[in-house]
């Protein structure tokens, strides 16, 4: 197995995002995640800069790297042209590739995202789809969305959209052949490998947590439920 330091360096985005940090704190100063969590993008950059295998291993298994909201406000301000947000992407990638992500609560949530956004991507050709923004999981969407959701055929039709139908237009059905191309691109460019890694490590974690069926196989419905109700430790 390659050292994680090397795995980070193999990602071209580390070269893009990591110049050299002088610890000025300009990134943390505007970071929405730093205001909300015990989170300090500066110290993550410093840890990656150190090249210390142990420190980076620690990051990969921590909640910390999953706190970034990817707004990239840090990129605009850095006086050394670093991009902490993109360094985070590289850490997350390696965390998922090595399975380290299942060791943290926030990391484990990648399974949920893969099963929702990921599934939407290949099923609909969209990251989100009206039928996937269900009312139970989205109370914050309010009564107007509830109305849209429950009457979506009529509402989208009135607005000249083309919901789930062939041809051009908003929310059109993406043709089978186009969806197929998307799926083959996934297969060809490493998307599938990533998902297999998320799936395998999540299943192992489910077994470790005892979330199994009568045959001892991981029960991913239980695991999903577990992830949705896991208490924050911080």
């Amino acid at each position: 197995m390659k050292m994680v330091v090397q795995q980070l360096a193999d990602d071209v985005r580390l070269k893009e995002g990591m110049n050299a940090c002088m610890n000025c704190g300009i990134c943390t100063a505007v970071c929405p995640a730093a205001e909300y969590f015990e989170y300090d993008p500066r110290s993550i950059v410093v840890a990656v800069q150190s090249g210390n295998e142990e420190k980076i291993q620690q990051l990969l298994t921590s909640d910390t790297i999953w706190m970034c909201g990817q707004c990239m406000s840090c990129k605009t301000r850095c006086p050394r042209s670093n991009c902490p947000g993109i360094i985070i992407n590289v850490l997350r990638k390696v965390s998922q590739a090595t399975g380290a992500f299942v060791q943290s609560r926030l990391g484990r949530q990648q399974y949920l995202i893969m099963k929702t956004i990921g599934a939407n991507l290949l099923r609909y050709g969209y990251c989100i789809h009206p039928s996937a923004v269900d009312i139970q999981n989205h109370p914050e969407q309010g009564p107007v969305w509830e109305w849209v959701y429950s009457n979506r055929e009529e509402v989208y039709e009135r607005l000249g959209a083309n919901l789930d139908r062939e041809g051009p237009g908003a929310m059109r059905k993406i043709a089978t052949n186009d969806l197929l191309e998307l799926a083959v691109i996934f297969e060809q460019s490493g998307g599938t490998v990533l998902w297999q890694s998320i799936e395998t490590h999540s299943k192992n974690k489910a077994i470790e947590l005892g979330l199994v069926d009568s045959q001892g196989n991981p029960c991913m419905d239980l695991y999903t439920n577990y992830l949705l109700n896991e208490d924050p430790e911080f």
Binding site: C24, G25, C27, T28, A29, C31, A34, D40, S43
Partner: peptide
């Protein structure tokens, strides 16, 4: 110890600063 990230103006023309106190590790 922290470099100023941005300044905004409040309604009374006083100013809001955003920096990190890097010795505390907090915004």
């Amino acid at each position: 110890r922290g470099r100023l990230s941005e300044v905004s103006e409040n309604q009374d023309q006083s100013l809001q600063l955003k920096a990190e106190d890097t010795l505390q590790g907090r915004p």
